[in-house]
Design a protein around this nucleic acid. Structure first.
Length: 182
DNA sequence: GAAAAGATTACCT
DNA sequence: GGTAATCTTTTCC
């Protein structure tokens, strides 16, 4: 399944989408030009998941999470924005870290820094894949299961035991706290 | 209208 | 390892 990923890619179980996004190239085209990273860390937010912003149904803030597969959900936390891609209704994958592919990309380790490196702003909330602003491409077989580490998600206070954080084992761009390398 | 919490980060010891 | 910064959204009175 190489090449550019469309809405059909995201219309699948969220955990699977999350794992298959590892190693994929996330590219944006904005006022600052083209920026790109190779994803090395993501988190899944699923149905009936108390840590999910969509838990409890649609609100003004999370409305993008109820858009079609391949919708960008951008939220603010403190003074930072973080980006997710919606999979199925009310579920999404948080983009946490990537390896920079272009010189202009500041260290994209951590969700806030990744979004900043890609030039993603709060105004991009609700944009859909295929609208020309951002795209995702797979240029290889993806990260083999043996090299994916699953760990509890970062920074949440509920459902803290679920292993829905996925990262490329040992990759230097994975954010802190680093999951065990095992 | 007021208060509390937050899917973070940077800087301190 | 701990804490402050900082501000919007949500929730409660």
């Amino acid at each position: 399944m190489d090449g550019h990923l469309g809405a059909a890619f995201f219309d699948r179980p969220t955990r699977r989408v999350a794992r298959e996004l590892l190693g994929a190239v996330f590219r944006t085209r904005g006022p600052g030009g083209v920026r790109a990273v190779r994803l090395v860390e993501v988190e899944a937010y699923v149905a009936r998941d108390p840590a999910n912003h969509a838990f409890g149904g649609p609100t003004r803030r999370n409305r993008s999470m109820f858009g079609p597969p391949g919708t960008l959900y951008v939220y603010r936390i403190h003074r930072v924005v973080c980006a997710n891609v919606v999979t199925r209704r009310g579920e999404a994958v948080l983009l946490r870290a990537g390896a920079p592919l272009l010189p202009a990309d500041a260290r994209p380790s951590g969700p806030g820094r990744l979004a900043r490196a890609l030039g993603i702003e709060f105004a991009d909330d609700g944009r859909r894949i295929g609208d020309g602003r951002w795209e995702i491409e797979r240029d290889g077989p993806g990260v083999p299961t043996a090299r994916i580490v699953a760990a509890p998600r970062v920074g949440i206070s509920r459902a803290t035991d679920r292993p829905l954080r996925f990262a490329v084992a040992g990759d230097p761009w994975v954010s802190r706290p680093r999951p065990p390398v095992t």
